[in-house]
């Protein structure tokens, strides 16, 4: 059986990488329940990157699940990129995380049709890992 493909996406200040995405990936890769079931790919792109470009890069990876990190400097472009991704690939499950959505999670999910779920807690790490596992088992 093919592993679930999860793309962790962040738009960072140029030259930086997302610590949040790195945590999520590290936790998930140490989770023995996910071993062999989930393949992670992290896309650390620069803030200011054309959202179309971001969507293109994500779609090239053909993810089943996207974990998107929302920060104040990236939220608008991230929403636009995910809108394009959702239009092109409606079956891709999108999980939002990061400081820009966690405190307003319900509102964010209501407002944005391209978001399916959101992570919470300490960078949403456990939640997103478990979500991937749940999706893999067909329970979410």
């Amino acid at each position: 059986m093919k592993p679930l493909r999860v793309v962790l996406l962040a738009l960072n200040s140029p030259g930086y990488r997302s610590l949040g995405c790195a945590y999520v990936r590290a936790y998930a890769q140490h989770d023995r329940h996910l071993s062999g079931l989930v393949a992670f790919q992290t896309l650390d792109l620069d803030a200011g990157t054309d959202p179309w470009w971001v969507a293109y890069r994500v779609l090239q990876l053909e993810p089943d699940v996207i974990g998107a990190s929302f920060t104040c400097w990236s939220a608008r472009d991230m929403h636009e990129a995910l809108r394009v991704v959702r239009a092109a690939s409606p079956s891709t499950f999108v999980v939002a995380g990061g400081p820009e959505v966690s405190p307003v999670a319900v509102t964010a999910l209501e407002r944005h049709a391209h978001l399916d779920s959101r992570g919470a807690g300490r960078r949403g790490d456990h939640v997103r890992g478990r979500l991937a596992r749940a999706r893999r088992c067909g329970t979410a």
């Binding site: 200011g48 990157t49 054309d50 959202p51 179309w52 470009w53 293109y56 472009d77």
Partner: peptide
Amino acid sequence: ADAAGMPVA
């Protein structure tokens, strides 16, 4: 494009 704040590919 950068100066105009226009994202381009």
